[in-house]
Design a protein around this nucleic acid. Structure first.
Lengths: 341, 341
DNA sequence: CAAATTCTGAGGTACGTAAATCAAAAATCG
DNA sequence: CGATTTTTGATTTACGTACCTCAGAATTTG
């Protein structure tokens, strides 16, 4: 039923060897003959059996995940998901490696990327640090024919093939929408808690949040951004200090990590008198806080989906296949305590 | 590197034929020998190369999607997604067929399922009608070794292998949570708009909605459920009538389909004086309504994900492989106008 | 027109597994 | 013990593709 190379050969009136030369772009075929073959391929609707081809080639995909050596819950989860994928990669003829680099260190990232390029690979997934030298290193990778996917945090206007992560600007806007509505008729100001403005995803969330709050809920006043470096202890002291100095804080948007510190403070205040809180990333602590009515909503990106999507995309790119955009869109999960998975 | 059947044979000190007999459960192997082989398999960490095996067997998966002949936007999308999958199924050695049955007709569904069982297939995905005779027909399918996945609407306590759809009770609870918060400090009652209480997913959404609203927002009063059979025209007249009779309606939860009718009425009322509205399923009309500030939130299940997940699960079941629960969980998307895809 | 070059065909081997045959070995039975 | 049955081994073919070699045909070049 499904046509094979033999059918193409017969239909085009050429030998198997010639079909093979055409299919694999090998030299030594006159353009007249090449066209005959190509027409037969189209006419019969031939599609190469990738499984058989990979078997014959003995192909194994070699992918590399470059992850920051962060130890917040999210990055730990992300690493675990990659490790899970590695466990499952045996029957998929894929060899996946993890390379750890210091967090937020563009130079180290560049070194790692160049090393991968030198030793060769089919694809690389990286949590990008948004810097020109990283852009250049990614450019070198794609020039070398290596597929590149950014993970969680994107690299603006670069030659990466794909971004496996959420639209952080939309996440910020969504948070603002929820905050505005949850605060309806409540007076008071909103505090914003970020990790660092040096990271692209945090910047984008902030921007989105501010724009929607400004446009649609102009009544709500905003305090200066608190940068707590995603560190739970620092978050705790800074939030406590902020609440002390501004007793009129009615809402907190925590767009980074380190929420354990925030939750400790909220626990002290108690469910009744705490402000409206919207945070990011569903972890053990934010989940518990949601269930315990200490947080109102959590925006989440699913690291498992991101990792699996990145692998699918890398494989597709390595095979020269198109990616299913709809399938690979990473969604912003909104969790209230009623739809926790 | 990766061990093959040859390695197993050598390591166990038996012939290739014996390894094959053990691997494929063929008779004619003494239990002592069988154990030797099995030990070698474990020791070497052998995993059968599925691609090579399928190639050798000339295996093609044969799946069947039994879909209701509904013509609401959601079912049309669902069918389109299956058709897309069919288009992509050629290189995946899968033959996917669509069988249409009258909507909400248990008898017709049973007939279709039995026909599939008779002509044979590897797996079936169906939008279940929740009835005992359907349960029995599904039982017959699984007895015949055919994998069964319910799609969108589940079949309670049946022998289906998997359910590819959202947790409708959680969806209802989430809607209630949002409704309660969006209504904070507003007086008035909430109207509920359903398709039919004969469908399991609608019942579950309603239950979830009522329970959370009752428990957490006892202040909010609820009007009797309006059943409008998912028909836009009927929805329109019934909503108009309800708003006329109850001018104090402050919120509408539309848990079924036919939202075009609802939106027409909302458009008349205008953005300013309309009630809070939460609806299900992102379609062209609900999307437009979200953007035009006629609806506040849309809960959505992604039919594309559901179809692809169903196919992955059917394939895994056919191969006797485990499914990745985390990957196959269908999520409840919450769309505000700020995170529309 | 012959020589050099470029195409093309025929055939084989390989990938890892499935499935079959047939002979030989081992176990079991009476 | 021999006869019978059960196990096992050796070997082969096949799946669809890749990749290789070598000979021969067709074409171009001098």
């Amino acid at each position: 039923m499904k046509p094979t190379v033999h059918d193409i050969a017969r239909s085009a009136g050429v030998s198997l060897a010639t079909v093979d030369r055409v299919l694999n772009g090998r030299p030594g075929v006159r353009s007249v003959t090449r066209e005959k073959v190509e027409q037969a391929i189209v006419a019969l609707g031939y599609v190469r059996d990738l499984a058989a081809a990979n078997l014959a080639k003995g192909r194994t995909y070699s992918f590399c995940f470059v992850l920051p050596a962060n130890d917040n819950s999210f990055m730990i989860r992300l690493r675990e998901e990659v490790e899970d994928a590695i466990r499952r990669s045996a029957p998929e003829r894929a060899r996946i490696e993890i390379v750890e680099v210091p967090a937020f260190d563009a130079a180290a990232l560049v070194t790692a990327l160049d090393a991968i390029r030198d030793q060769g690979a089919d694809g690389v997934a990286l949590v990008a640090v948004d810097a020109p030298e990283v852009r250049a290193a990614v450019e070198r990778l794609t020039q070398a024919g290596i597929a590149v996917v950014t993970l969680v945090s994107d690299l603006g206007a670069s030659s990466r093939d794909h971004y496996a992560g959420i639209d952080n600007s939309a996440a910020g806007r969504t948070a603002a929408n929820l905050m505005g509505r949850f605060l309806s008729k409540v007076d008071g100001r909103v505090a914003i808690l970020a990790g660092s403005m040096l990271v692209r995803d945090h910047r984008e969330r902030l921007e989105g949040f501010l724009s929607v709050l400004g446009e649609e809920f102009p009544r709500v006043a905003i305090l200066p951004v608190i940068e707590a470096r995603d560190d739970p202890a620092l978050v705790e002291t800074m939030v406590r200090e902020a609440l002390r100095r501004h007793p009129d804080i009615a809402g907190i948007y925590s767009l980074g990590a380190g929420n354990r510190g925030l939750i400790r403070v909220l626990k002290e205040k108690g469910t009744a008198s705490r402000p409206v809180v919207i945070a990011h990333e569903l972890t053990a602590s934010t989940r518990e806080a949601l269930q315990g009515d200490l947080i109102d909503a959590v925006l989440n990106q699913d690291p498992g989906h991101e990792v699996r999507s990145a692998i699918r995309v890398l494989k597709a790119k390595a095979d020269g296949l198109p990616v299913l955009a709809a399938q690979e869109r990473i969604r912003i999960d909104i969790f209230l305590k009623d739809n926790l998975p």
